[in-house]
Design a protein around this nucleic acid. Structure first.
Lengths: 351, 351
DNA sequence: ATGGCAATCTGTAACGTTTCAGTATATTGA
DNA sequence: TCAATATACTGAAACGTTACAGATTGCCAT
């Protein structure tokens, strides 16, 4: 049995939603004419065009996505590829909101394609490309030599990355300037008299790990501060791991008097570790942290923060992919966001 | 020009991905036979079936979604409808992870359908139903008399709600027992000698607002405690609003000595407000809060918490919608999750 | 007049799938 | 032996869309 009762003439009987055939019947034109009239094709008379569009609006015609997709191969879908087991207190929702915001004005749908710990990160990408399930893809956790970017470039799938790559290939990206972030953080700590600094870095392997490390190192030598190694943990470790590791290092003789943290959740753990060791934030040690929502000052007003806007990242990434799909040069769709200044919430305690 | 070069026989030339026609050509069968063999139809010979399935696996055949969708009307899509401007420190990512987790094992894709402050919450629902863009829908921010649920029920769109409705209609839901949560919270506070309690409630209008209020009231009378009105704010208000309102109420003579908070982010604001008023958590006042990730004890170890698992909610909701689509009785797909016990992280200070 | 041409419009086919209505062959019952 | 029937398979049509290759009309230059 057929699920829809549409008679040959295209007259919708009761339930079926209108199709081109319906419009053709109502206007007395052929479906081809209707189709072209709706997309403002040049060889359609001005009056016919207006008439068709009016009727279409009146009866609430919406093109059938499956029909378009089958015929043209265009899916009107953007896929956001997400790792589902990193990042607590996650920025993921912000990115999704940002992407949604942009796609809402377009015929595009957002589909979320997950992959997990156990999987090859290439798997969802291959799936999307092979099945042609999306017109464009957004990926995060970008690596300097990212096989996903290379693969999509080779296969002509438009995409945008959250974070840059570093393999001489040109593609849209949105990135936060973590080099400058780390430098500003170090400078700020130095200006407060902190000169033995530890860095809680992003996970090694991701591009911004390098950016952060370089910025940190550059600023250290600029201000003449020294590094206390803290590289056995990264922001990908659990809260507990970071906390105990921080407590350990804070109990040592040569302990840091300043921390730079690349993520808000991790900062909670660092502070907890500091206090576990019997030390006090703002007196014995200062911490500069990135945050994506304005909450850390509630946690400890002594914290110094730099804001990273993931919602902006999301909308920017969405616009970039759409731009590439629309024919723009991928090289023109790259954006490096400048770090805002380091913000304090309580007056600094003199050391 | 056609985007794909597939000759009449179905032999894929280079780039095109295999279709039923390809399989038909390779096996020497008709497309109908191949189609039926792949879905284990009874009138296909056992050997043929195995042969077709083998070849299909070998060449990596995947049914074309647009083809299936056009022909059958099935989209293989579940839509998660989200409000994009509530909830900082949002549980949204957890729900998405939970849903993804379940859908990953199925042919279903997850599409995120947003709506914002300015829009009618019915709009995305109508869109989904009218365009048939999804086989099932998940909604949150459920109301006792929810027009979205009613509409989808009337139009035969399977769905599941995060939170219950209360209009005598039966549909799948996943809900956290906020009645019990509020009761346990009050009991715990009372057991610590706190008897003037304030409730930071969910936004009025949502179903669990009522559940929470009732649980709070029931327990108040049970333990003989009294309520300090705190209903000019809800967890939907901004951090700043909650903070200043808390500080106000804490400066009054008849101030609360205990808070029950329905959301973790709001709890940060409550504590900030308490401290703004020069009072101390654990000494002057205790706070019981729900949280969805295990972070509040880092914020203030004196906080008392109850965990709500949104990832579980997501996977549960996904399973429910799939179940309904698959023909299960909607009434059998309802789940009320019991509240875990109130957890403390530091020994209670005697009052 | 006639051929050419621009301006509008139209029918057909195809995208990949599933369903309907068969067809061909082998098997059974009388 | 012949018809009835079960088994295994098949072609055609349809879902809604767009691209291709016309078709029709009127108008102008020759």
């Amino acid at each position: 049995m057929d699920r829809q009762r549409t008679d040959k003439s295209g007259e919708t009987s009761a339930q079926g939603r209108p199709t081109l055939k319906t419009l053709a019947f109502m206007t007395g034109l052929g479906v081809t004419t209707v189709s072209r009239a709706l997309k403002d094709a040049p060889e359609i008379g001005a009056e016919t065009r207006r008439r068709v569009q009016l009727v279409a609006k009146q009866i609430g015609y919406r093109p059938n996505r499956a029909g378009v997709r089958l015929r043209t191969g265009r899916t009107n879908v953007i896929s956001l590829v997400l790792n589902t087991d990193r990042e607590i207190m996650s920025f993921v929702s912000d990115i999704i909101y940002g992407v949604s915001e942009v796609l809402a004005e377009t015929p595009y749908h957002l589909i979320v394609t997950p992959y997990s710990r156990s999987q090859d990160p290439m798997e969802p990408i291959r799936y999307l490309v092979e099945t042609g399930s999306a017109d464009g893809v957004i990926i995060s956790r970008t690596q300097p030599n990212d096989p996903r970017a290379r693969y999509m470039l080779e296969h002509g799938m438009p995409f945008a990355t959250h974070g840059r790559t570093d393999m001489g290939l040109v593609h849209p990206y949105h990135d936060f300037d973590n080099h400058v972030f780390a430098m500003e953080a170090v400078r700020r700590l130095a200006s407060m008299g902190r000169h033995k600094l530890a860095l809680l870095s992003p996970p090694p392997g991701l591009t911004y790990y390098g950016h952060t490390l370089n910025g940190f190192a550059d600023a250290l030598s600029e201000v003449g501060a020294s590094e206390i190694p803290f590289n056995t943990v990264s922001i990908d470790h659990t809260i507990e791991q970071i906390r105990t590791r921080t407590a350990q290092v804070m109990r040592r003789e040569n302990r840091p008097d300043g921390f730079v943290s690349s993520a808000a959740a991790a900062t909670l753990a660092i502070v907890a570790g500091i206090e576990d060791a019997g030390l006090k934030l703002g007196r014995d040690v200062d911490v500069v942290s990135k945050q994506s929502s304005d909450l850390l000052h509630l946690f400890r007003p002594e914290l110094l923060v730099v804001n990273e806007n993931f919602r902006l990242a999301g909308s920017d990434l969405a616009r970039s992919v759409l731009g590439w799909i629309g024919g723009a040069a991928p090289g023109s769709l790259q954006r490096l966001v400048a770090t805002g200044e380091v913000q304090a919430f309580s007056p600094p305690v003199s050391v």
